[in-house]
Amino acid sequence: MKNSYTTPFFSLLLLFLSGYGGLSFGVSPAFAQSVGNRQVQLRIRFVGAHGIRQREEGARFSPEISDLQEKLLRFPYRDFRLIDRKLTTVPVAKRTELPLAHGHSLAVRTVHVSEQRVGMWLKWTGGDGMEILDSRLHFTAQEPLLTGFEVEGDRGIILILEVRQEG
């Protein structure tokens, strides 16, 4: 009878202790590795787009972004041109500031990363200090994250972010 009464309380206590112990003494190596000295490879492409695409009208792409044609067609623009690109390695769980073209900047912090999934905080700031996007999101590691920003009615810039696990 005593056991019946105390089971839920002991369960909660054990859960707490196991979680605490796991984090403190490295019982969970996967977690420790994910927040330890791991690094991820970040590939950034900064694309300028202009001209509103009419229906049935094709779009033009610069050769550096030809692999993203299908995805870029979601944006309503006609011409896409690569402005800037970066390939860098950033540590997991640490904030990294990356300057982009024309005064834009991107701050990223990888929350978690696995072969399938990436969790990331990112803050994209415009050249004039405008906070274009400040978000924490989780997305598929194999797929690029595309974020467009409408500068004017017929003009925009697109930030393409790809994350790969290193090693």
Partner: peptide
């Protein structure tokens, strides 16, 4: 494909395309 914990922007943010397939695509309008 994409799960958003929170999002903040000086503009209006919307998701382009089918949110269940393909690459996640966000579009920020002033």
């Amino acid at each position: 494909p994409v799960e958003v914990d929170w999002i903040r922007s000086d503009g209006r943010v919307r998701m382009l395309g089918n949110s269940l397939t393909g690459a996640p695509t966000l579009f920020v309008k002033k």
